[in-house]
Simulated scan of single mutants.
Amino acid sequence: MATRKGLGDKRNRHDPAYLRAKREKYAGRAIYKLQEIDQRFRLIKPGTQLLDLGCWPGSWLQYAVGKTGTEATLVGVDLVPVEIALPANVQTIVGDVTKLKLDRLVERFGRFDLVLSDMAPNTTGNKDFDIPTSEDLFLRALDIASASLRIGGHFCAKVFQGGRFPELLREVESRFQQGRAYRCEHTRKQSREQYIIGRGLKATVARAHDPTEG
């Protein structure tokens, strides 16, 4: 579902973040958004077990593994295969997050400390389509996080801001000890892109969404 804008996108070639990412050998300019969010909310630490939804082209995994170290397990999921080289403790899965078998995911990798989502729809330019589709992706990411995070784990996901934005924020606040909205400095001015961060998954939510029960 994600829009494909890696470092090969010609529209990026005069963008300072794009040029910096290319110099620093990151797969995409989005790395600096995660870096900014992480510095603000301190989500990634050594040993953090992490799930990255919509992980292509891989820059978030590149940044995250640099913080977690090689002892942690990092898992990325996307419709498109990640082609960059990553350390052996980073595994990527080609698949549709809407069809992800959460019980198998948890059985295979255990519970995560952090679930990230930079997913976005293949944008059409029609906000009446793009925004609701983005909201649906966000809610799917939130449900995956609720089912695969350990109690006390964290969540961060992108959404295009629209009429349901307050509702989405309240939903995160209901599942986590703290919910916050954040707009990155590296987001383009014309973009509706926002991130919602949930810190501290509640025990009642983890039990209610446990995919290995029942």
Rank of each mutant, 00 (worst) to 15 (best):
H186T: 14
S117F: 02
T133A: 15
G125V: 11
R183L: 05
E36D: 12
F160H: 00
K99V: 03
Y18L: 00
L51P: 00
G163S: 12
R40V: 15
I37H: 09
S174E: 11
A157T: 03
L50K: 06
G66Q: 00
H14R: 15
G125R: 11
C156L: 13
D9W: 13
R180S: 09
Q190T: 13
L100I: 12
L7H: 06
A208M: 08
E107N: 06
Q194R: 02
Y63K: 02
L43V: 05
I144T: 10
C156M: 10
L142V: 08
G162S: 09
D103H: 06
E171S: 13
D118V: 04
Q190G: 14
G28S: 15
G95V: 08
L34G: 08
A88C: 03
G28R: 14
H186C: 11
L105V: 10
E107V: 00
T187S: 14
E71D: 14
P87L: 10
F165E: 02
R13P: 05
I31T: 11
G162F: 02
V159E: 12
T98K: 09
I84Q: 01
E173S: 08
Y26S: 04
A30W: 07
V77E: 02
R183T: 12
T70I: 06
E173D: 07
L105T: 08
Q39R: 15
E171I: 13
K158T: 10
T48H: 09
V77H: 05
P166D: 05
D52M: 11
A85H: 02
R175A: 08
I31H: 07
E173H: 04
D103I: 06
Q190E: 14
A17W: 13
W60N: 01
L201V: 00
G28P: 09
Q35V: 09
R20D: 08
S117W: 04
V94D: 10
G58D: 04
A203G: 07
E193P: 05
L61G: 01
Y195Q: 01
C184A: 07
V80L: 12
L53I: 05
D130H: 05
E71Y: 11
L149M: 13
W60P: 05
V159A: 13
C156H: 03
Q194L: 04
P16L: 11
N12T: 14
A147E: 07
G198R: 08
S146G: 15
